[in-house]
């Protein structure tokens, strides 16, 4: 028993359950929806995952340290729109500078969040609820209620979502999906191997102790929000590429999906536990439900958000019941090692 406890962590059991749930969802929808098992279905799910997961990675950074960012949807919409505007006005801009512009824009909005939270000592949930509204209002204000339309965008951008990284027969891996996966891997490494990443866990785990141990809590808060903003900016770019037509309500409500993905993915909303891999699994489940419900006629559009809400509640509830039991069981295994040698 002890050797099992040492090699498997309770969080891994949770991730395994999530994988089973994803398969269960696919099997269920396969039986309900005609022609469900087609490469197209999965490509569509994957594209949706690609955008969501980039934001979820940023959100995870923030949630790990016992914070939250509700403004991500607005940041995605904001960057999607204004990056689009920039391209329309300067078609000669290179793809790389466009991507950097998107991340810079998002990063600045995230930095504002971070500064208000870290230095202004306003609770994260209040701050980002405020900026959720403010960033969206800025977008509405400065866009003059005009929309970006696909036909005004350069060809490379409009075609980007169709570019394959590689393909095997009808099954293909899109470039944007690959980029998203690379980001997940990079940030999984960041939170495992960089002191900065480990400190996110420490701060979320016990903020008082973190301050007492001399961890740079304020600086870390600012940098985590800035990164979350920059990643949301990148997602804004992907959003623009995928949809082309951007109105002022673009990505509205995305924060619900992202928080759902993160929480369902096993990142503790009180900080301290979770992984990027978990966030990816959470996103896959949420995106699968989203895309499949679109095609499942029994369920009306209005119920989709309710279902997301229900999932968040379920995930948190099972977390506090099941995971805490698992943990207690594991912890006792750990304490057994406390012995004194003579």
């Amino acid at each position: 028993m002890n050797s099992i406890r040492r090699t498997i962590r309770p969080e891994q059991i949770r991730e395994f359950i999530l994988v089973l749930l994803i398969f269960a969802a696919i099997l269920f929808f396969g039986s309900q929806i005609e022609n469900y098992y087609q490469p197209r279905t999965f490509t569509r799910i994957a594209s949706s995952v690609a955008i969501l997961v980039v934001v979820a990675v940023g959100q995870t950074l923030v949630v790990l340290m016992r914070n939250i960012d509700l403004s991500v949807g607005s940041i995605v919409g904001f960057t999607a729109y204004f990056v689009g505007r920039a391209i329309v006005n300067n078609p000669e801009l290179s793809p790389l500078s466009i991507v950097l512009l998107a991340m810079l824009m998002g990063g600045i909005l995230g930095l504002v969040n971070g500064i208000i939270i870290a230095y202004g000592r306003v609770p994260a949930i209040i701050t980002t609820l405020g900026t959720l509204a403010i960033y969206r209002s800025l977008l509405v204000q400065f866009s003059d209620a005009q929309t970006i339309i696909t036909s005004a965008l350069p060809e490379w951008l409009v075609n980007l979502p169709q570019v394959n990284a590689f393909a095997i027969g009808e099954w293909e891996l899109k470039l944007i999906v690959l980029i998203a996966l690379v980001i997940v891997v990079i940030f999984q490494l960041v939170v495992t191997y960089l002191p900065w990443g480990r400190r996110l866990y420490a701060i979320g785990s016990n903020p008082d102790a973190a301050a007492m141990s001399g961890l740079p809590v304020t600086r870390m808060t600012v940098s985590a929000y800035t990164l979350c903003g920059a990643l949301s900016g990148l997602a804004g770019f992907l959003f623009l590429a995928r949809f082309g037509n951007i109105t002022v309500v673009a990505a509205q409500g995305m924060e619900l999906q992202v928080v759902a993905a993160v929480v369902v993915g096993g990142i503790n909303i009180f900080g301290g536990t979770g992984s990027m891999f978990g966030a990816l699994l959470g996103t896959v489940l949420i995106a699968t439900l989203e895309q499949s419900l679109l095609r499942w006629r029994i369920v009306s559009e209005f119920w989709r958000d309710a279902l997301l809400g229900l999932l968040i509640l379920l995930a948190v509830a099972t977390d506090s019941v099941i995971l805490s039991r698992l943990r207690a069981f594991w912890a006792r295994g750990g304490v057994e090692q406390v012995q004194i040698e003579n």
Binding site: R6, R327, A331, G333, G334, V335, Q337, V338, I340
Partner: peptide, 15 residues
């Protein structure tokens, strides 16, 4: 310190 404590075990639940 002559203490046997598994360094890989979680700190949750330590006495």
């Amino acid at each position: 310190l002559d203490v046997k404590l598994d360094v890989r075990s979680s700190a949750r639940g330590l006495t």
